[in-house]
Computed example of a mutant assay.
Amino acid sequence: MAQDRNTEELIIEAAKKIFITRGLAGARMQDIADEAGINKAMLHYYYRSKDKLFEIVFNEAIGKVIGRLGMVLNQQMPLLEKIPAIIDNYIDGIMEAPYLPMFVLNEINQQPEMFVQRLKSQQHFPNVLQFMKDIVDAGKQGTIREVSPVQLFLNIVSLCVFPFIGRPIAQGILQLDNVQYNMVMEDRKKVVTEVIFAWIKV
Rank of each mutant, 00 (worst) to 15 (best):
V191E: 10
I200S: 03
D51W: 08
L159Q: 03
L10N: 11
F153E: 08
R5D: 11
F103S: 06
V116K: 11
A85Y: 06
N127I: 08
L73E: 10
D34H: 04
G70I: 05
D134A: 13
A2N: 14
L105K: 15
D31N: 12
A15Q: 02
L53C: 12
F58I: 08
R118Y: 13
R28K: 12
V136F: 05
I56R: 13
L80P: 01
A138K: 10
Q180H: 02
L105F: 10
R145W: 03
T143S: 10
P163G: 11
K140P: 01
I94D: 00
R145Q: 11
D92P: 02
A198L: 07
N39W: 13
K133Y: 04
G63I: 06
I18L: 00
P112S: 08
F164Y: 08
Q151M: 15
P101I: 03
F58E: 08
N6C: 05
D31C: 10
E35L: 01
K190W: 01
R167Q: 14
M42W: 07
F54P: 11
E81M: 10
M42Y: 05
L176M: 11
K52H: 15
I200K: 01
Q141H: 12
D31M: 12
V179G: 03
V192R: 07
A85M: 09
R167S: 12
E13W: 10
G67E: 13
N39A: 15
A61C: 14
H44D: 03
H124G: 00
N39K: 14
I94G: 00
Q30E: 14
I11F: 11
N74T: 06
K140A: 13
I83M: 02
F164S: 05
D4R: 12
Y46I: 09
I169G: 11
V72N: 08
G67I: 14
F162V: 15
Q110D: 15
Y47P: 04
F58P: 06
D88N: 02
E9V: 08
E186F: 06
L79Y: 05
M132R: 12
A97E: 10
F58M: 12
K189P: 10
V192M: 10
L152P: 10
G37V: 09
N182V: 05
M71N: 15
I11Y: 08
I165T: 06
I18W: 00
F131Y: 09
I135G: 03
M95H: 06
K133I: 06
L80K: 03
N89Y: 07
L176E: 03
F125P: 01
N6S: 12
D4G: 02
N74R: 11
T21C: 01
H44Q: 08
T21Y: 00
M132Q: 14
F125E: 04
I196N: 02
D4L: 08
A27I: 05
Y99K: 07
Q175T: 03
Q75C: 03
F58Y: 12
E9W: 09
I86K: 01
K52I: 09
G139S: 07
D31Q: 10
Q151V: 15
I165M: 02
I169T: 11
E9S: 15
L69E: 01
P168I: 00
F103T: 06
A61E: 14
N39Q: 15
R118D: 14
L43N: 01
Q30G: 05
A138W: 13
V202H: 12
D4S: 13
L10E: 05
A27V: 02
L154Q: 09
N59S: 13
I38T: 00
Y181K: 04
